[in-house]
Computed example of a mutant assay.
Amino acid sequence: MPFTLCTWNINSVRLREPIVLKLLEEEAPDVLCLQECKSPVEKIPTEGFAALGYSHIVARGQKGYNGVAILSKTPLEDLGDRDFASLGHARHVAVRLENGVRLENFYIPAGGDVPDREVNEKFGQKLDYITEMRDHWRAEAPEKAIIVGDFNIAPREDDVWSHKQLLKVVSHTPIEVEHLAEMQDAGGWVDITRQDIPEGQLYSWWSYRAKDWSAADKGRRLDHIWATPDISNAAHGSRVLRDARGWEKPSDHAPVFASFDL
């Protein structure tokens, strides 16, 4: 059975409920993974989602910060969450889909502004978070699994508008890219978006600071869909819904899609 998956850093699910509903109505993915929900679970506006057929939700939340949620048309089995780097943040949740796939939704720490853990605690937390993800998959090899989310790292040179200018900017520094690659290798993860779209500039985030984000087009690919090798060949149809960055009261991230024939 084919199913379509979407991941989106929504930057407040309550503030941006209208564009979540717009996405669900117009694009109708089978599963939608949200990050940076910025809401306690009990205050996530589920009624509108359920009215569109998304009556199943598994989420972790906290007031004003972080938060992850998985919305689905079909039942989800809650597989729990992990507090990587012991931050006490709502940054991860895992479910099992009806087709047996394990799906994990992540919001990896952004890392602050200075790429030096000696002067910026948040950067150290980001590296530690990814290291613990790496160690987790080294100890427990994943099978029939998909991980998605805002990883807050653009790993490839063509995942940013200027590789040279962003080498010392958090999200594209060599140490972050190296940590992410080690984590990817530990789980044998396949970058589905780049499997489907192997060449060319590709972004999923554009800063609010740009007066005309589309014309400037200074983007980064921070949002990812990865799968284990046993199901990666079933993936297709990857795309970034760039237009959503221009919707009313948008997130600074655009939704990323992939389909799987499983």
Score class of each variant (00 low, 15 high):
88 G>W: 12
138 R>S: 15
212 D>F: 12
16 R>K: 12
204 S>I: 00
188 G>T: 03
192 I>P: 00
9 N>W: 00
106 F>K: 00
154 A>K: 01
213 W>P: 07
25 E>C: 06
197 I>R: 10
26 E>N: 14
151 F>D: 00
84 F>D: 01
45 P>E: 09
118 E>Q: 13
178 E>D: 15
160 V>K: 02
90 A>M: 10
132 E>M: 11
24 L>V: 00
171 S>F: 11
253 H>V: 03
98 E>I: 08
211 K>Q: 14
208 Y>S: 09
255 P>W: 03
256 V>L: 08
144 K>R: 15
115 P>T: 03
225 I>T: 04
93 V>R: 04
221 R>M: 10
186 A>E: 07
203 Y>V: 04
21 L>T: 03
187 G>F: 07
140 E>M: 15
16 R>S: 06
257 F>W: 05
6 C>D: 01
170 V>E: 00
123 F>M: 05
166 L>Y: 09
49 F>A: 00
72 S>L: 05
192 I>K: 00
246 G>W: 12
131 T>Q: 14
145 A>R: 04
254 A>N: 03
21 L>W: 04
198 P>F: 12
108 I>H: 01
71 L>G: 00
50 A>K: 10
131 T>P: 08
107 Y>V: 04
181 A>Q: 09
136 H>G: 10
20 V>N: 02
39 S>N: 10
113 D>K: 14
181 A>S: 11
245 R>C: 05
249 K>L: 15
71 L>T: 02
95 V>D: 07
2 P>Q: 11
156 R>S: 08
202 L>R: 04
2 P>M: 10
258 A>V: 01
73 K>H: 06
228 T>E: 10
58 V>G: 02
4 T>G: 06
18 P>D: 14
45 P>T: 06
232 S>T: 04
131 T>M: 13
134 R>Q: 15
37 C>F: 07
136 H>V: 10
1 M>W: 14
245 R>Y: 09
211 K>V: 13
257 F>R: 00
62 Q>H: 11
218 K>P: 05
216 A>T: 14
199 E>H: 15
36 E>R: 02
81 D>G: 15
34 L>R: 03
136 H>L: 13
34 L>N: 02
12 S>G: 09
2 P>L: 09
107 Y>L: 08
76 L>D: 08
260 F>P: 00
181 A>I: 05
228 T>I: 10
125 Q>H: 11
79 L>E: 13
20 V>W: 02
135 D>M: 12
47 E>N: 13
127 L>S: 02
122 K>H: 11
169 V>G: 07
65 Y>S: 09
26 E>I: 05
101 V>A: 03
158 D>A: 09
243 D>Q: 13
39 S>W: 06
91 R>N: 08
257 F>Y: 07
115 P>Y: 05
99 N>F: 09
71 L>R: 01
223 D>T: 02
63 K>A: 13
108 I>V: 15
107 Y>D: 04
147 I>L: 12
72 S>W: 01
17 E>R: 10
34 L>W: 05
141 A>K: 15
132 E>N: 08
12 S>Q: 08
134 R>E: 13
